[in-house]
Simulated scan of single mutants.
Amino acid sequence: MRLNTIKPGVGSKSPAKRVGRGMGSGLGKTCGRGHKGQKSRAGGFHKVGFEGGQMPLQRRLPKRGFVSLTRGRNAEVRLSELAVLPVEDIDLLVLKQAGVIPADSLAAKVVLSGSISKKVVLRGIGATAGARAAIEAAGGSCGE
């Protein structure tokens, strides 16, 4: 086999339709657009989902689901970030003052990333199962 002999499979490629080239082509006169109407004319265009003024399907159907407005204001804190804090009792205010989480955060959760060897007490802060185990192994607690 040589690269200059490679050809696509038989029937996989068809020649492009040349519209408006006489009746013998099968696409003469109206060029396959039919007679009259918006779609037959040059520039005949309507928005996707437009139903001629009828209330569109995406507006007729009820909207379901939930989008949390506070999702972006939940912060994650690594174990290694807790280890460098100078205090033992840690709450949301301490994390904000230390610059670990943004000042507009509404909630925080400790995730298992890095390690911790000092005792810390979490108040009003969540923790994943792995982070909770690591904090308790170091002598700390995750009491709310």
Score class of each variant (00 low, 15 high):
residue 97 Q to T: 10
residue 117 S to R: 12
residue 116 I to V: 08
residue 33 R to S: 07
residue 20 G to D: 07
residue 54 Q to A: 15
residue 130 G to I: 04
residue 31 C to I: 09
residue 123 R to I: 12
residue 67 V to K: 15
residue 113 S to W: 05
residue 45 F to A: 13
residue 7 K to P: 00
residue 11 G to L: 09
residue 9 G to T: 09
residue 114 G to F: 03
residue 142 C to V: 15
residue 139 G to S: 07
residue 6 I to D: 06
residue 33 R to W: 08
residue 144 E to V: 10
residue 80 S to P: 00
residue 24 G to S: 12
residue 10 V to Q: 13
residue 6 I to T: 08
residue 88 E to H: 01
residue 93 L to Q: 14
residue 50 F to H: 15
residue 69 L to W: 08
residue 101 I to L: 01
residue 102 P to C: 05
residue 82 L to I: 06
residue 44 G to A: 11
residue 54 Q to D: 11
residue 70 T to P: 00
residue 15 P to V: 03
residue 72 G to P: 04
residue 60 R to T: 07
residue 101 I to T: 00
residue 24 G to Y: 03
residue 112 L to D: 15
residue 106 L to G: 12
residue 125 I to T: 02
residue 17 K to R: 13
residue 12 S to K: 10
residue 10 V to P: 03
residue 111 V to R: 04
residue 142 C to L: 04
residue 22 G to V: 02
residue 115 S to W: 00
residue 100 V to K: 01
residue 84 V to T: 14
residue 41 R to Y: 09
residue 106 L to R: 10
residue 94 V to G: 01
residue 126 G to H: 10
residue 39 K to S: 14
residue 59 R to K: 15
residue 77 V to E: 04
residue 124 G to E: 12
residue 83 A to T: 05
residue 79 L to A: 04
residue 62 P to V: 07
residue 21 R to M: 12
residue 51 E to A: 14
residue 124 G to I: 08
residue 25 S to F: 05
residue 105 S to G: 03
residue 39 K to L: 15
residue 97 Q to F: 05
residue 100 V to F: 02
residue 4 N to E: 12
residue 122 L to Q: 03
residue 8 P to I: 01
residue 141 S to E: 08
residue 133 A to V: 06
residue 15 P to T: 08
residue 8 P to V: 06
residue 112 L to V: 10
residue 78 R to G: 00
residue 136 E to Y: 03
residue 2 R to H: 11
residue 13 K to L: 13
residue 132 R to Y: 04
residue 10 V to M: 08
residue 141 S to P: 00
residue 103 A to P: 04
residue 31 C to A: 14
residue 138 A to E: 01
residue 54 Q to Y: 11
residue 105 S to Q: 02
residue 72 G to C: 08
residue 20 G to P: 00
residue 103 A to T: 12
residue 3 L to T: 13
residue 7 K to D: 05
residue 134 A to W: 03
residue 72 G to L: 11
residue 111 V to E: 02
residue 37 G to T: 05
residue 144 E to I: 10
residue 25 S to N: 07
residue 25 S to V: 03
residue 139 G to M: 05
residue 31 C to D: 10
residue 20 G to A: 05
residue 118 K to R: 15
residue 6 I to Y: 11
residue 137 A to D: 11
residue 140 G to V: 02
residue 116 I to N: 00
residue 43 G to E: 10
residue 116 I to E: 00
residue 85 L to P: 00
residue 117 S to Y: 05
residue 82 L to M: 06
residue 46 H to P: 01
residue 118 K to W: 03
residue 94 V to W: 00
residue 85 L to A: 08
residue 17 K to F: 08
residue 54 Q to C: 08
residue 86 P to M: 05
residue 102 P to N: 07
residue 136 E to V: 09
residue 96 K to Q: 12
residue 118 K to V: 01
residue 71 R to F: 10
